[in-house]
């Protein structure tokens, strides 16, 4: 049963999420190249919208241009949801995404105007992850799967899988905050290492609970495999990024290996968080018998 599914809306939501990944890469490149203050003014860049794209300006102004594009795409998403979505909470989610991307832009400006205080930089990083999770959630809510998959199981075990999944999201988010704090020199490595251990432990617990209690829930089991894969890759990448940081500590300018390993670690961190959010959404869909999401859907877009 896929009544209410709108392929145009879903594809547009996927496009927005993909653009956000690109934006995360652009943002991470700014920090890794120490280019956050290459453009000292905001919202213009050197008093113009098209400064010479040289050196650090390429990264900082490039990030601003990609962010502007994602902002425009998000406006399109919010308008599209408002026009074609029949679920009021989905329309609200579209406006929430737009609000956060605007807030994120303001925080980006704040980091420049205040010359990168760690708190502002960390909030900027955390909001980026939050925005990405919202775009991914919209893509899930508008997917054919969301409308088609029936509820299959009763989540009455202890602790409830849904509770574990929520904890996984919260701990992963906190871990990303610790990562941002490390990156912006507010914290040392230890909180981030402890966070990694906590996330790994929770992923293992969630995976075991899923395998034992919900063997028939194919979507959840696939998601668990995905979570294990991305968390494992993220830990390896984290180790590599840390090694590259130590190895190039005395380098007189940013080294490409340290830049790209750290950028990859940062972006994969966002993907891990989004994966945990998807796990929560899928758990809700499959394990909450009372979830009424299927009752209402979208109207087809006339094109």
């Amino acid at each position: 049963m896929t009544a209410g599914y709108n392929s145009t809306l879903h594809r547009y939501a996927l496009f927005t999420a993909a653009c956000t990944v690109f934006l995360l890469v652009a943002g991470a490149l700014v920090t890794s190249n120490d280019a956050g203050l290459a453009v000292p003014d905001w919202p213009t860049s050197y008093g113009t919208f098209f400064p010479p794209m040289v050196g650090g300006i390429f990264y900082e102004h490039g990030h601003r241009m990609v962010a502007t594009f994602v902002g425009l795409v998000t406006i399109g998403l919010a308008v599209l949801l408002w026009r074609v979505e029949s679920r009021p909470w989905m329309r609200a989610l579209g406006w929430a995404a737009l609000s956060i991307v605007i807030l994120q832009g303001l925080f980006g400006g704040l980091t420049v105007m205040l010359r990168l205080p760690p708190a502002a930089s960390i909030i900027h990083a955390a909001l980026a992850q939050t925005f990405f999770c919202i775009t991914v959630s919209i893509a899930v809510f508008t997917s054919r799967w969301w409308f088609a998959e029936p509820a299959v199981a009763d989540d009455s075990g202890s602790p409830r899988l849904l509770s574990l999944a929520y904890w996984l999201v919260c701990v992963t988010f906190l871990q990303l905050v610790f990562g941002a704090a490390l990156r912006h020199n507010a914290f040392g490595i230890w909180p981030h290492l402890a966070g990694a251990a906590a996330v790994l432990a929770l992923v293992i617990i969630v995976s075991r609970a899923t395998r034992r209690r919900f063997a028939a829930a194919g979507s959840l089991r696939v998601l668990c495999k995905w979570l294990n894969a991305v968390v494992g890759a993220q830990i390896l990448l984290g180790g590599a990024a840390w090694w590259s940081r130590l190895a190039t500590r005395d380098a007189l300018q940013p080294e490409p290996i340290a830049i790209w390993l750290t950028v990859a670690h940062t972006v994969l961190g966002a993907i891990v968080l989004a994966s945990t959010v998807v796990f929560v959404l899928v758990s809700h869909r499959l394990l909450s018998a009372s979830e009424p999401a299927m009752a209402a859907g979208t109207q087809p877009v006339s094109s």
Partner: peptide, 15 residues
Amino acid sequence: TFSLAAALALAACSK
């Protein structure tokens, strides 16, 4: 729980 943890972490980051 989450809000408290996040607020503590961010407050500690202020320079």
